[in-house]
Amino acid sequence: MTYLHNIGKYFLMIAEMFRKPTKWSVMKQLILKDIDDLVIGSLGIVAFIAFFVGGVVAIQTSLNINNPLIPKYLVGFATRQSIVLEFAPTFISIIMAGKVGSFITSSIGTMRVTEQIDALEVMGINSLNYLVFPKFISLMLYPFVISIAMFLGVLGGMAACVYGGYGTLEDYVIGIQTDFIPFHITYAFIKTIVFAFILATIPSFYGYYMKGGALEVGKASTTSFVWTSVVIILLNFLLTSLLLG
């Protein structure tokens, strides 16, 4: 029953987020600040993880190909498919649920605990629009982060393959060009946009409606990470079934 109540409350929060918009001159600054905090601030960790995971995927694929009938370019092909279809959009989003999601929950939760949200409400400001809407808009740039993750993942695979002695550059390049289906990129970005919406709203929900003190802010961050991850995994399954199944 609590789950149903929370799901209903979540959708009401989404509806409220679009009502009574904040003055544009103020909103513009909030969006720019959130782009800096949520998008630009995540580039470093995303780039680092994508590059090295791309390398690991290439090494693992190479080490598991023993059959001489399997072409060497399969390493590049498998790395590209893994990175573009799943690793960059889905698993980077799970990592972002930890990084960006915890940040959103704890910052909004702290504002709740310290009555800053009450202060906004008393002034007649739609606090959900003021706090959540800029995060939602700024995370619409999330596909840009995922594009970088895709590029660096494939690049990491290439570096590991070539400099680790697992294959040649020519084979790898042929592999990443083989059977390329442009719709896979569209599919990845559709998922990314949906996950961006989830990343902005579920952590905000847990921060905004939290009750208690500092300890509860920590608990809310953990719960928010768990539910954001669960929803991302479920939606990943659903979207994959719908778009590729």
Binding site: K33, T110, M111, T114, E115, Q116, D118, A119, V122, M123, G124
Partner: peptide, 13 residues
């Protein structure tokens, strides 16, 4: 309406 909260509720940022 002007409101002074118990913990001041100033915006940290």
């Amino acid at each position: 309406i002007g409101m002074v909260f118990q913990g001041s509720a100033l915006f940290d940022s």
